[in-house]
């Protein structure tokens, strides 16, 4: 049974990776990577039971926290980027009215 659950988790992780590759846009990718991370936590926990090594659960706890912090950090970074770009654009617009603010990011 444990092996079947691991197989199901692996299939789901592959599906999540497929979504992360296909996209489109940054939010679909972050969503897929976040899901990949939570499934990794479950996979580590289940693997601990399969191999009779409950120490694996500590790694699972750590991975759950790191995964969450990583997703929030990525979102904060992209948004700080946008805010910074907007602020800079405003400053530029004040100084030289002929420089249009460009935003090269691909929007989702």
């Amino acid at each position: 049974m444990i092996v079947a659950v691991m197989a199901a988790l692996l299939v789901t992780m592959v599906l999540a990776l497929a979504r992360a590759f296909v996209g489109p846009g940054r939010y679909n990718r972050i969503l897929a990577i976040n899901m990949f991370g939570t499934k990794t936590v479950l996979f580590v926990a289940v693997a601990g039971f399969l191999f009779g090594r409950p120490e694996f659960l500590d790694i699972g706890i750590l991975y759950a926290l790191v995964n969450f912090v990583a997703v929030v950090a990525v979102l904060r970074l992209t948004h700080y980027d946008d805010d910074l770009a907007d602020d800079l654009a405003d400053d530029l617009a004040d100084d030289l009215a002929d420089e249009p603010a460009t935003d090269g990011e691909d929007r989702a």
Partner: peptide, 24 residues
């Protein structure tokens, strides 16, 4: 465990099948 595995795989399939970001 079986029910959980079923839900997990369904979520993965939904992530591919659903039409836009919010539904995913």
């Amino acid at each position: 465990l079986a029910a959980g595995a079923l839900f997990v795989v369904s979520g993965g399939v939904g992530l591919l099948r659903f039409p836009d970001f919010y539904t995913r």
